[in-house]
């Protein structure tokens, strides 16, 4: 990632055992690749897990939104234990409660309804990004 430019980091859980990990990952990519590529980015969660210094510095420097796939909240815990700037934490399973009519097919291929749900999760991430921006405008000193 570009290191000097102010970014909001989106870190999904990416758990391989559950489709919710795939949804978290896909939602993050909708934001960082399609919707807000200049304002957001992602870092490898495994790099945080092993304590990579550069990745730790990034999560300490920029606001982070985590998207967890299960109640273990690995992404959130990893950012917290790295003393990262956790701005918001979303949980795919909690969000799914309002969309149980959508069928998420599998870990490899979430299917059209799974993709639709990932876009809904991306919408929630956008809401959090707007909140961060608003707070920054209201209190620029606190967010820097």
């Amino acid at each position: 990632m570009e290191e000097d430019k102010e970014k909001i980091l989106i870190i999904p859980c990416s758990g391989i055992g559950k489709p919710s990990g795939t949804i978290a990952r896909l939602a993050a990519y909708y934001i960082v690749e399609d919707l807000l590529p200049k304002e957001t980015d992602t870092v490898c969660l495994p790099l945080l897990v092993i304590g990579d210094e550069k990745t730790r510095q990034q999560v300490q420097k920029f606001p982070v939104i985590t998207i967890d796939g299960c109640p273990y909240k690995c992404a959130t815990k990893s950012v917290q234990s790295s003393n990262g700037k956790l701005a918001a934490s979303l949980n795919v399973l909690q969000l799914y409660r309002d969309h149980i009519d959508l069928e998420v097919k599998s870990v490899v291929d979430p299917g059209p309804e799974g993709e639709k749900f990932a876009r809904i999760v991306a919408g929630k991430i956008l809401d959090e990004i707007r909140k961060i921006k608003r707070e920054k405008e209201e209190c620029p000193s606190q967010s820097s």
């Binding site: 990632m1 990416s14 758990g15 391989i16 990990g21 992602t42 490898c44 969660l45």
Partner: peptide, 19 residues
């Protein structure tokens, strides 16, 4: 155990390969 690294396409490949 797959890396699943979110930052690189190879992370996605590692997931797909494992599955």
């Amino acid at each position: 155990v797959a890396c699943s690294g979110e930052e690189i396409p190879e992370g996605t490949v590692s997931r797909v390969a494992v599955l």
